[in-house]
Each structure stands twice: as structure tokens, then as C-alpha cells.
Design a protein around this nucleic acid. Structure first.
Lengths: 234, 234
DNA sequence: TCAAAAGTGTTGTCCTTACACCCATGT
DNA sequence: ACATGGGTGTAAGGACAACACTTTTGA
């Protein structure tokens, strides 16, 4: 076989938008870029796709490099390919967004990349079009979480309803009625109440819950209705 | 500036999943591939991204080449990049899906590509991973049309409620109650009733409607609820 | 005993669905 | 006159949102 003639070849990279939740704020994991151009600037974690890898494998590898974790929630966001997005050379970037339990991360962190968590209200200037990627990922997170139980990926195995509600409130930047919230969440039957309580945030203590992983996997794609009046997301 | 070293460059192409509706069936526009490999086989319309183009521009150009039309509805579906997807040479494909008014198309068609419309029940074997692209595009169409008034893009400027309902019924492969359907659709206030009727499909004739383009643009991203019991889409 | 957060029920409203009959007209 | 598809209204049930008080316990 001959080759396609007269076509330009370009670099293909992955960039990862990594969300975490520390109990108070929704956060983004950024690194200090270690090579030119823009060396030393804040950037999404990324890397080039290798010759034998598909995109998913590359994104998993890159996520593992930074976080030490495997099997993270991960989803292709969009391919970015404006001609000038990397001034050095045309580079297509496949953006992936990923949700991780920030506590797991802290156990496993690699210090090689000078990574830091930033609250979404305090994102520094980012290189290239990474700002656009982050903004789009936020929108997609809001959209998807309105219909699918995706935010559990940001919490530890055991969590309380107040914690979960705070998380939803952060994502949608609004307050929910706790009675309606707990009724909706529990009506999905995705949660299993534990015997023990979390007692750091209140005197009374709040019951822990765990995900029913089996039901979670089976029903993940079904449309739920977690958010009141979802009319004007986006 | 130097260049990124030791990284392989690859080809970047666009493939377009083009849906149309002829009043009876939901259809897909395919071409006979004009060059090796897989020359003469059925394929999605595609092309390489040029050095000065971004993806949207490339997709628009490719859509215009085939259909003669500009300003078509178009949305990035997913980037496909498995190492062996094109046996000739590694090629990343950014898949776009597009909705067109099949009648507009027939006025403008280019015969250069031996294009044909195929009912979605009768898709021939396609090259590479184009089958996967089509399947994913169908899912995305169902998902998106459940929440956004996207299917209007498949109809001519003037259309009737029965036509619109047939379209929804095709997309979801089910029947809807016409009273509930018209109430839901009209309650969006996106449609403007015309004075004239379409009389080819019935003796009484059905009123034409037109989109209120302004409201359509403004409210497009809001979440509607067109489909009864959307619990198990996907 | 008080403050602070957790947990729980009820009611009214609106939305959604199921369902049936009349209308207009070409043959 | 009749067959065909178009158009419309109502009632019942369910989902959702608004709302307030009691419980627990550490300080």
C-alpha cells in the first residue's frame, strides 16, 4: 500500500480536565508545565498519544501518571484543533474530563508535576485554549449531573446526604431544599444506608451511605431528575 | 522555537454523519469512496483537515462539497483514533453529525461522490469504524432530541404537526398520542401556525407551521420534555 | 440549656397521561 | 355517503415543590 499523499501530519495530544471535591469546594487539578513552550505556566495535565495507544488508553495512562489512580471516571469531552492553538506546532488535543475522589488522590499523588488543586472560582490563567476546555467541562458536568448520578464519582466510598447535597449545591451554585433533595436521591434506590455516622460536621451526626455499585452501573444511563427546574441549565 | 521531538505526527480527517428525513424514514447520506484503501465501498463523507482550517471549518467545507449547502446544523460527535482504524496509516477522525432538510439537499446535490440516502434499517457495510460512528450518532440524536428541539433541522421551512410527529416516531421507533404530542410541541411556543394547509396526505389537509426562528435560537439550549417517559433512552 | 445540624411528612399545584369524538374533504 | 386522516378537550393520577418542627448531642 502506498500512503495518502500531500497531506500534513500533526501531533495528537490528550488533555485532562480533572475535577475533585474537598467537601467545600469543587476543584480542578492543574500542573506546572515542565517544557517549552509556556514552561512553568499553569496547565491541564496532558501528553502525546503514543503510536500503539487509542485515546482512552492514553488518557488513562496520563491520569495514572499524575494521580497514581486507575479506573477513574473519564469521558471524552471534545477534540480541539484550531490551527494556532499551540504556537510551536499544530497539535490536536483530545480533551477528557475526569472525576476523582480527592482523598484517594492525596494518598497516591505524584509530586513530579507540581500539581495543585484550584477552586473553580480561583483558576489561574492557563496556557493555550485550556481555559475553554475547563469552561466546556464545567458545562458538561452540570448538564450530565442533572440527568445521571455522575457526582458520586467525586465522593469517597462512604458519604453522607448533607455532603452529597453540598456537592450538588457547589456544582449548580444554588441551594436545594434538603427534604426534597433526600427524597429524590433516595428514590433512585442507588444508595445503601450504613449503620455508622459521620460526626465531624455536626453533634448529632449524619448517617453514612454507600453506592449500590451494581444498580449504579445498570442504571447509570437512565435519565434521572435530580435538579429542580432544570429548564435553564446550559 | 524548536519542535516537539520524538513524537509521531498523524493525519487528521473529518467524517460526517448526515441525517435526513423524507417524510417516512430517517435516512443517512453515504458516498462511494473514491480512493484507496477501500475504494468503491460505502463510506461516510469525509476529508482531511487542511493546514489553515479548524475542525468546524473543515466540516462545513466537506458538507458543502457534498450537499452544496451552507449553515447546516452540525455538531462534533467524537474523535475516533484507534491505531488501526485506517489500515493505510494512522488517521484520527473527528466525527461530526449533521441534520439536513432532504429536499434542500436534492436541489443542490453534487453527483461527484455517488451519494445515496439509506434508510437507517438498511445501512450497508461501511468502511473502517464508520459503523460505530453511525451508531453513536443515532444514540446522540435520540438523546439530544429528547431535550432540545433539534429535529426541526430535518424538516422543510413549512411542515405540519403530523409530519413532525412521524419524524419523532421514527427517531424513537414508537408511537405517540397525537393530542398529547401537539399539546407539548405547541406549548413550547416555538411554532407559528400558517394559514395554508398541506393536502397531499389527507383530504382535510393539515395546517402548516413554521419555526419562530428567534425563539428557537434563544431557547434552543433549554431543557424541554418532548418524549414521554424518557427514563430509558440510551 | 442552648446552639447547630440532621432528619422527617403533608399539602396544594401543576404536569402528564390516557382516552373518544367531531371535522373536513376527495372519491 | 363514506372513508381517511386532522384536529381538539377533559378528567384522573402522579410528580414536584413549598413549607416547619422535632431530634440529637457536644459544649
Amino acid at each position: 500500500m502506498t500512503k495518502y499523499q500531500h497531506q500534513k501530519r500533526v501531533l495528537v495530544a490528550i488533555d485532562c480536565i480533572i475535577f475533585g471535591f474537598d467537601g467545600a469546594d469543587l476543584k480542578l487539578l492543574l500542573i506546572k508545565r515542565g517544557f517549552e513552550p509556556e514552561k512553568g505556566k499553569w496547565s491541564l495535565m496532558g501528553g502525546f498519544v503514543k503510536a500503539t495507544e487509542n485515546f482512552e488508553q492514553a488518557a488513562s495512562r496520563i491520569l495514572k501518571q499524575l494521580t497514581g489512580l486507575e479506573g477513574l471516571y473519564m469521558e471524552q469531552l471534545l477534540a480541539f484543533g484550531d490551527p494556532g492553538r499551540d504556537p510551536m506546532e499544530r497539535t490536536v488535543s483530545i480533551a477528557y474530563f475526569s472525576l476523582i475522589d480527592i482523598l484517594q488522590y492525596e494518598k497516591q499523588i505524584s509530586h513530579e508535576y507540581h500539581a495543585e488543586w484550584f477552586s473553580l472560582h480561583e483558576i489561574p490563567r492557563l496556557i493555550f485554549d485550556h481555559q475553554d476546555m475547563v469552561e466546556l467541562a464545567r458545562e458538561k458536568l452540570r448538564y450530565k449531573a442533572a440527568f445521571h448520578p455522575i457526582l458520586f464519582e467525586l465522593l469517597p466510598q462512604k458519604f453522607t446526604l448533607p455532603q452529597l447535597q453540598h456537592l450538588y449545591e457547589e456544582v449548580y451554585n444554588t441551594r436545594f431544599d434538603k427534604r426534597n433533595f433526600s427524597r429524590k436521591i433516595l428514590s433512585t434506590e442507588l444508595l445503601v444506608k450504613q449503620k455508622d455516622k459521620e460526626k465531624e460536621n455536626s453533634k448529632k451526626g449524619a448517617y453514612y451511605y454507600k453506592l449500590n455499585k451494581k444498580k449504579y452501573k445498570i442504571h447509570f444511563h437512565e435519565i434521572l431528575n435530580i435538579i429542580p427546574n432544570p429548564g435553564n441549565l446550559h
